[in-house]
Structure formats: C-alpha cells, structure tokens
Design a binder for these strands. Structure first.
Lengths: 124, 124
DNA sequence: TTACTCCTTGAAGTGCACTTCAAGTCAATA
DNA sequence: TATTGACTTGAAGTGCACTTCAAGGAGTAA
C-alpha cells in the first residue's frame, strides 16, 4: 500500500505519516527496492494504533516510548503493559473531567432555556 | 481577592490569568483604585468557567467568542445557547472516542496479561 | 530611606505537533 | 524524449496556548 493510500484510508496526511516514522512513533515502514514505502498489514496496524492513541490525546513522547520498548524486545513486555495501564488510567481521568464539563454545560444550557423563552416573549 | 490567591485557588499561573483577561477569554477583572486586580465573585465565576472549559479542551477561540457574545448583551442569548449546545455535542463526541480508545487499551492490556505470565514463566 | 515583595504592562520566547517548502529521484504516459 | 505526477529527504515554517522576561510602580518592614 502506498503512502497516499494509507493517507486516504486513515484520513491523515502523507507528511504526518512520514513524520511519525521519522520520529519513531511508528517503526520503520517496509520499503520497495527503490526505497518507496510499501505499507504491509503490520505497518498499518502501527499506523492505526498511533492515530487512535493520538486522537485520544496521548502524547507523542509517550507513544515513542512505547514503540522504543517494543523494539527492545520481549524483556520490555511488563514495562509496556505498565505503560498502557498508566495511559488507560489517564484517559479514564479525562473522561471524568469531560463528563463533569458536559454536566456543567447542560446546566448552563438549561439556564438559557428559560432565558431564551423570556427573550422571545419580549419580541412579541 | 488578589491574582496570587486566585492563582492558588484554581491552580493556574498568574501569568495565565492575565493572559486570559488580555485576550478577552474572561471579561475585564475588577480593579482597585491603584489598578491592581481585585477579583470579585463574578470575576471568579468567569475564571472558573474558563478554566473548566479549557481543561475539557474547548479552544480559546470559541471561548473568546462566547465572552464576546456575552458582552454584546441580551440579544445574543439565543446565539450563546446555540454555541454551548454545539460545544456540548463536540465534547460528547470526544467522550465516545475516549471510550473507544479505553476499550482498545483494555484489550491490548488483556493481551499483555497472558504474555507477561509466559514471560515470568520463562524466568524460572 | 533602603530593601523586599507583589503587583503592573508589553514584548519576546517556548514546546508541541504538525505542515510546508525545496530539491531531487523514478516510472509511466503523450 | 520530454514532461507529468507520485515519491523521497532534510530543513524551515506555522499555529496554538501559554511562559518568561524586562522595566517599572506601590505598599510594607527594618
């Protein structure tokens, strides 16, 4: 799969994909003899993982750490697991904040509900 | 209340509070005769709102728009309400993404669960 | 009265995560 | 054969949201 196809598939720019590879946020992508990237399923899995995690707000620094551990082999399995658990917890906290904010917005919107009615009343 | 006290109270730097006021993310703060900020309850409400919304990831641009509408008076009430509803929706979408990512992480962690066991077995 | 601390503003600097640009290679098509 | 279009790399540029710096003012303690 070419970089353009992957770009289309995951709705991310080619430049970003190259950037991710360059900084080690995904492992080196498979190349054809001429040096052109030819994404295999394994590469796609990494791309998808990277994009999903970034979308959830996990920092590039953390993700590079994860990929670096992966490259170091099996000895890092417990560390990698710990890293994922830590990130899971941080996302759960984010969810909580988000839920609280939504509740707060709902209250504020509810407050506007009556005020809009009054406002429209005034217009008559 | 001084800026240092507000800074402490909401765990945000004085510089950020000044910055928020300067860019119009909160309305102008009440001052003493000598020009020093003396936050009143009303000011605090704005500060709290701004910080909570920022924490939830709502952009500065949007929040400035809201404050600007507020300053323009009652005619903007329906617009303000619409803006809040829009943001509420966008937060709900974020929650969904977050939940999906957490689910995905849980699966990945579960996968590591067995691999860690194997790894520790190997060490014996 | 000098020194200290906290406040003020305006301007410049920083960190993160891309994004754009410049220069070049390669394969396919007019 | 020339040119078009997609690819390559390295470097520089961008946007957002602060953060730090520089210069100065006001109030209090020694």
């Amino acid at each position: 799969m070419t970089i353009a196809e992957v770009s289309e598939l995951y709705n991310v720019s080619s430049a970003t994909l190259r950037y991710y590879e360059r900084i080690g946020l995904i492992p080196p992508v498979t190349r054809k003899e001429n040096g052109i990237r030819d994404f295999q399923q394994e590469d796609l899995n990494w791309v998808e993982f990277a994009i999903k995690m970034r979308d959830a707000g996990i920092s590039i620094e953390i993700l590079i750490e994860y990929v670096t551990l992966f490259k170091m082999g099996k000895d890092t399995i417990p560390t990698r697991k710990a890293l994922l658990i830590e990130q899971r917890e941080s996302l759960a906290k984010k969810m909580e904040i988000l839920q609280n904010t939504i509740d707060r917005l709902d209250q504020k919107i509810e407050g506007y509900e009556t005020r809009v009615l009054k406002y429209e009343e005034r217009l008559k």
